[in-house]
């Protein structure tokens, strides 16, 4: 009984701590007062304002565009790395390759951002590319730091499944290309999807690296939000948080049911 109580108490306190700030923010997004914290009455006023705010809408579109492109490229490169490290024995300077593909995981964002910015400026001086900082430079940076995360996911999946299946197919005379697409790819498909989703979230969430590498016309959503909340509170950002939370919760519920029906099968 005592132990049961301990369990319930730690779970309740833990989850209350995780959810209290988010729920408070959502509650205040319906506050009809310009001063965020003084309650005046229930309204959708800030949601209206949010959808009229062109700066936020534009930033949202840019963020989604960069995140989906970056996730796609990072997934392709990440699959290549995961495959190389588990299936190809002859990699020139293999330890260096491992270093390159894993150390972005432990590199503080601020150092990555700084190094990429200095690189873009120097390469612009030397060969004129990239011609200016903007969406392209943010995209390149996001791909670079997401690749390592995708590679880790793919690598752990590839090293845990039975290599003999591929070897059997090879002995039966299957073309390597076909082996990859018919056997390896379907097996790692769930990992590819979770890798893509992780890369997408990483890009959508990134403020530091994007702040360094952005330029005119490439203000992502976190950059705009940060500039709005840096010095004070913003009721529009409260409304934005509530909408994002709604999406996340819906995605989580969908995931829960898909997962459950998979288990039942």
């Amino acid at each position: 009984m005592n132990r049961y109580l301990l369990k319930v108490v730690s779970l309740v306190i833990g989850f209350a701590f995780l959810y209290f700030p988010i729920l408070t923010l959502i509650a205040y997004s319906f506050n009809d007062n310009k001063r965020v914290m003084v309650w005046k009455g229930f309204s959708f006023r800030w949601y209206g304002k949010l959808f009229q705010n062109e700066q936020i809408i534009e930033a949202f579109v840019i963020s989604i565009k960069i995140a989906s492109l970056s996730a796609t490229f990072a997934t392709i490169l990440g699959v290549m790395i995961g495959y190389s490290l588990t299936r190809i024995s002859k990699i020139p300077a293999r330890p260096f390759f491992i270093f390159l593909s894993s150390s972005p995981l432990v590199m503080p964002e601020i150092i990555l951002g700084l190094s990429l910015l200095l690189f873009f400026i120097s390469s612009n001086h030397l060969i004129g590319f990239p011609s200016s900082k903007g969406q392209l430079t943010v995209l390149i940076s996001h791909i670079t730091f997401s690749v390592a995360f995708v590679a880790v996911i793919i690598q752990s999946r590839l090293s845990s499944y039975d290599k003999n299946i591929e070897e059997a197919a090879q002995d039966l005379g299957t073309i390597p290309n076909k082996i990859f697409w018919k056997i390896t790819a379907p097996v790692i498909l769930p990992s590819i999807i979770s890798g893509w989703l992780l890369a997408f979230t990483l890009s959508l969430d990134d403020l530091v690296v994007a702040s360094f590498t952005t330029g005119p016309g490439a203000n992502t959503l976190p950059i705009v939000v940060f500039s709005k909340v840096r010095l004070g509170l913003s009721p529009e950002v409260n409304a934005l948080s509530a909408i994002i939370m709604l999406f996340v919760i819906m995605a989580a519920i969908a995931y829960y049911f898909v997962n459950r029906s998979n288990i039942q099968k």
Partner: peptide, 29 residues
């Protein structure tokens, strides 16, 4: 499984907004 989903939801929510939430909560008012 349900608790796991509840753990993942804050993980997916924007990092910046979760920091901002504390700024709202801890204000003088």
């Amino acid at each position: 499984n349900l608790l796991l989903i509840l753990l993942i939801i804050p993980f997916w929510t924007s990092f910046l907004l979760r920091v901002y939430a504390w700024k709202v909560i801890l204000q003088g008012s």
